[in-house]
Design a protein around this nucleic acid. Sequence first.
DNA 1: AAGTTTGTTTGATCTGAATCAAAGACCAGA
DNA 2: TCTGGTCTTTGATTCAGATCAAACAAACTT
Lengths: 246, 246
Amino acid sequence: MVAYKKSSVACSECQIRNRAVCSQCDDDELSKLEKIKFYRTYPAGQTIALTGQDMDFVASVVTGVASLTQTMEDGRTQIVGLMLPSDFLGRPGRQGVMYDVAATTEVTLCCFHRKPFEELMVTTPHLIQRLLEITLDELDAAREWMLVLGRKTAREKIASLLSIIARRYAKLHKTPPNKAVDFDLPLTRDAMSDYLGLTLETVSRQMSALKKDGIIELEGKRHIRVPDMERLIAEAGDDADGGVLS
Amino acid sequence: MVAYKKSSVACSECQIRNRAVCSQCDDDELSKLEKIKFYRTYPAGQTIALTGQDMDFVASVVTGVASLTQTMEDGRTQIVGLMLPSDFLGRPGRQGVMYDVAATTEVTLCCFHRKPFEELMVTTPHLIQRLLEITLDELDAAREWMLVLGRKTAREKIASLLSIIARRYAKLHKTPPNKAVDFDLPLTRDAMSDYLGLTLETVSRQMSALKKDGIIELEGKRHIRVPDMERLIAEAGDDADGGVLS
DNA sequence: AAGTTTGTTTGATCTGAATCAAAGACCAGA
DNA sequence: TCTGGTCTTTGATTCAGATCAAACAAACTT
């Protein structure tokens, strides 16, 4: 167990990006990561190809939002994963990805070439350990979301989504607890509906309802203010400390 | 990469159980697993406690079915994971499990004491690798199920569940493809409804409808025969090779 | 500044699944 | 063989969310 220490190779944008990949790597290991690292930015709507002849990579999200989508032949779609800043994209040691990965907003990735990354994994056991941890977190998030999709009402679904995003933002910006949370919603109504298993009309109606009831405040279509997180969480039907991606 | 070879320590019940935990372990490693192994059987309905002072363990399912359940305060429940034979229960290296784990039918587990199992993981890198693989499979299953919960109709949901179980049974009993598949449904209508995000009445109605349409045949309440898997899979709205737990 | 595109809101109506209710079926045990 | 319990089916009704439809708002053309 190597204690956390600030490193010269910490990501210049945010200080935590490489640490998001492995918080236990020492400077030497991080500098190896550094060597195989590059950045890419994708405009909103663009598909992110994680494989391809000499452009295979895994990545962590630096800014923006990407989403994993599954589609049925008749066009019904379900977003099965929202990747927010610090989330990890790609599966080292696995061949094809079975989902569409697409930028939902403009998204910047901190990428690592797959081959050398996988080689690094072999010689760095705690990197695999860390990947297992990340995957278990994703599994928890997916299962929590199964409860949302299977058993929650439209209003609860919206509140669940908003509280996840609000909490992430609050953490990122270190908003003190029980202060109002302010953020830009990184999803269109349509994307929200695909994540929640609803139609966009229902999403719009429930957003209006939450606004009317003072649970959220809207400035324009996208900017949201949550005056009281407790109330929003209660609307989501979660117990106090719940929350998929927290 | 160690080639598969039959080992004296392969599970006496089914030849594959330890292999289900790690197919790459050599005889020496398997015999270490052997030393920390024991079996437990739980009657239907009983909670399976994976932690507890000196009874911490991880396990793989040998026979029967266990389920992971999430519950809201008001009692709404969602089964977030069905553990069929050869599935792995418990999370090495992680503290609490956040779901209820319960036997759905009588279930026999092949258990490994947690502490020594985790120690073995440290000295056996491909065990972690294997656990990562297992976890990624579970993640795929969970995400496939998100599509089922979010976007499929009641009839498609039922067909999806039946085709998963039928495929598992077909594999286990090596039923040749495009032969009829025969199996005992290991779930009550109530458990089915909790897995599918429906009510048990809807489950019952749709089962009757599928029967009337000749997609499935029922003998008694629980024994099911699928004369044509292709048709069942088509009803599930999946493309040919889909299927969560395959 | 008018016209187009893209995203959003709101209204009217319809429908699939939930809910409420009751009756069968299949047991284990006396 | 009856009897109470658990599980399942079926029927009648209701309702949350889908669908169909139209208008609105902001951002880009040119």
